[in-house]
Design a protein around this nucleic acid. Sequence first.
RNA 1: UCCUGGGUAGCUCAGUCGGUAGAGCAGGUGACUGUUAAUCACCCUGUCGGGGGUUCGAAUCCCUCCCCGGGAGCCA
Length: 508
Amino acid sequence: MLQMHGKGLRNALLHISRPMTKQMRCCVTVAYCYAAPSGDRIPLPMSLSSRIAQLLKEQPLGRTVTIQGWIRTRRDSKGFSFLEVNDGSCVANLQVIAEESLPRYQEEILRLTTGCSVRISGRLAASPAKGQAVELQAAEVEVYGWADPETYPLQKKRHSFEFLREIAHLRPRTNSLGAVARVRSALSFAVHRFFQEQGFQYIHTPIITTSDCEGAGEMFTVTTLDLSNVPRKDGRPDFSEDFFGRQANLTVSGQLEAEIYCLALGNVYTFGPTFRAENSNTSRHLAEFWMVEPEMAFCDLAQDMQVAEAFIKYLVRYVQEHCPEEIELFSNFVDKRLKGRLAAVLEHDFARITYTEAIEQLKGCGKTFNFPVAWGTDLQSEHERYLCEEVFKRPLIVTDYPKSIKPFYMRVNDDNATVAAMDILVPGLGEIIGGSQREERYDKLLGRLEEMGLNPEDYNWYLDLRRYGTVPHAGFGLGFERLIQFVSGMANIREVIPFPRTPGSAAL
RNA sequence: UCCUGGGUAGCUCAGUCGGUAGAGCAGGUGACUGUUAAUCACCCUGUCGGGGGUUCGAAUCCCUCCCCGGGAGCCA
């Protein structure tokens, strides 16, 4: 299951184009090599052993294979032991039968515990017992590393996610966090595949930036100034002495920079980390998170919404097709209603409602909310949940918000009161996508900057895009971790990113 | 940051009216067994989040700080 592209593929090709060493030939012939029938996969030197995912899928009975991985559990029987090995390639373990006649059975195999790393060779056979179709009859067991059961934190029982969070360096060895990692990887690839199939260009927008995507929250400053002796001017830090000669920050969004390339290449997208220094302590906020931001030229809000809906459906379908075991695991242990919810996303069109209609509906529904409902104020979480989960019961797109509560770059509608904005809400999570048609009219944009008290000088380059060859364009931002939460059912966003960064917490 | 609920064995938790701490799992030993969250018996395990206070006596009551969950705000 080696799907390679980009740099990895290039390296592999470099490898192969050189004369094969004796060792490499040995690897390729010794290993049970699942060479792709399609011929587009290249055997790599490290395919010395089989991946368990592939063995369970192809079940090459009678063949001698080698696996490498970590012991999940050992059960002893009369004259032999059952070892369950997981190598991270899939949810399932491979059951190994280790007879007592094996060398070092007493001294080593009977000492194997959860977490030990091993290399095992043997013959793959049909399993006589229930619970698994195939098993490995070990001929050779080599222990790479022990895991003292007195101190190894992971046990062969379920742990709380809160506990696992404290051992970020070990938690990917669990079923659920390993599954999340594979789903995250699959979805990352699917994001690129969706856009590449549609002819979008992938743009690397800067992580260190000097522009502020207004309205996207507090920023982290990037500095090499001596913090114990900050140079000051008029009482404030003098960033002219800093590394970049001016204040620089970690990006909160790649959108503004993406617009530059959108207005040159047509359809583009960014996919990278973003940083927000907000003191947000919730199950769906991170200080460092990944965002997907397509930006499309010659595109209005209606088309923007069509792309966003197609995108979400594509990703849901992709994960259903490519990670069925992971989805099964999440359905059984994380969220019982997950599979039904994902199926429902594909079955129905997303619901659509304008902000003004939403306000009317909320006012007339007879329900009392903690926060008052009034045109001109932002929809509160409870309002969004009510509309999405109780009224429509499916993903909901809310459009045309009052311009007073939205950033300067959103296109003002003809009513001069609302902007061409849209938020996509999903049940259980809330906002997963926020997007808009951008203001492409120079005068209107300038007016909006001034109206909001921003200095047009700071946005000169952004205004240039409207001065010269402006075109209607639109885009949106998708919170990648929220997407993973949505397709996995994981309740807390800290579980869907390998190393979560939140206020007061940045382990590793 | 605000509201709210928590912090007790390696993990998940119970702990009555304030009287000096317990269960399941994990771990150890043994038995049994094509087992699969194996089973059975026995054994081991504690700074009761930190600090301070009230009291003859505090896991328990009070103050304070730290950390975690849920909800809210901000947003993706």
